[in-house]
Design a protein around this nucleic acid. Sequence first.
DNA 1: GTCGGTATTGCGACGCCTTGCAACAACAGC
DNA 2: GCTGTTGTTGCAAGGCGTCGCAATACCGAC
Lengths: 152, 152
Amino acid sequence: MPAAIGPSSPWDAVPDLLRARGMRWTPQRRTLIEVLAGIGGHLTGAELVERCRAADPTTTPSTVYRTLDVLEELGFIRHGHGADGREEFHVLPRTAHGHLHCGTCGSSWELGASEVGGLVRALRRGRGFHVDLSHVTIVGQCESCASAESRP
Amino acid sequence: MPAAIGPSSPWDAVPDLLRARGMRWTPQRRTLIEVLAGIGGHLTGAELVERCRAADPTTTPSTVYRTLDVLEELGFIRHGHGADGREEFHVLPRTAHGHLHCGTCGSSWELGASEVGGLVRALRRGRGFHVDLSHVTIVGQCESCASAESRP
DNA sequence: GTCGGTATTGCGACGCCTTGCAACAACAGC
DNA sequence: GCTGTTGTTGCAAGGCGTCGCAATACCGAC
Ligand SMILES: [Mn+2]
Ligand SMILES: [Mn+2]
Ligand SMILES: [Zn+2]
Ligand SMILES: [Zn+2]
């Protein structure tokens, strides 16, 4: 009788992907991946460290950040920076996107390829520059903050 | 005989601008402004702290960063963030511009309003969002790094 | 010129992230 | 199963900023 097959997840491939590159599958990496698999969306590095520490109190920040680097190289996550420069990680992004961030109220929105496509193509054609869309964060003022300011 | 009139500089207005807002003109602010007046272009916060310390060894980082905030509110400088999230200051920008940064070789270029204008207008019309152009840093790969990678 | 209110400074502590290094432990090979 | 190689970890230290707080000093008023 064959073992039951659980629901498959993209994360299941990580151990073999690592070993195929001569890297190793360690308990610390397993902890981070379990954390990442249990959430979605955007988190800061500090939040990820915190969640790993909840799962395993012996977690060390440097190990988490180094593993995040590895997972980004493998394409499982991407990072950008908030308005203050802090790292924000996007887990398993369906499609590349940047971020729009209101410096006044702190809200943020995803910036689709359709909105930035013109700029991306212009930079590619005009300068040969390849934009890393997921690293793009546009900071400014959102509609409600701008109108609140002009009509005090 | 009237006193000789030296070459006038935009920085000359700072003391009175501060006092008009109920703020104060201090030796520490004078030091930073002399540093800023002596250079141009883009510098990181740490570089500015370093230059202030060279001019006055008693310089404290927190005071420099707080004064940079004040000068940015007055419009004398603007800041963005490098690929690693560190602050970069632009002194007396002639015209608002963003930055293009190659994550591979570290080079960077100015991004003119003409190149980003389409995106800025689209975000304004579509979302009511007001982009802070000088805070924009687009990271990616420059032409020479991209071709070096595709033709190894 | 002195005085007082209050903006500013310097300090210490903290938060986020990176790096060098010695000790450890995956895992390939036998 | 061992064993050796070498990728990883944990630690300590450092760099970049930020913040709260008590002491300082700017500057407007008299
Ligand atoms: Mn910023
Ligand atoms: Mn980055
Ligand atoms: Zn807002
Ligand atoms: Zn390059």
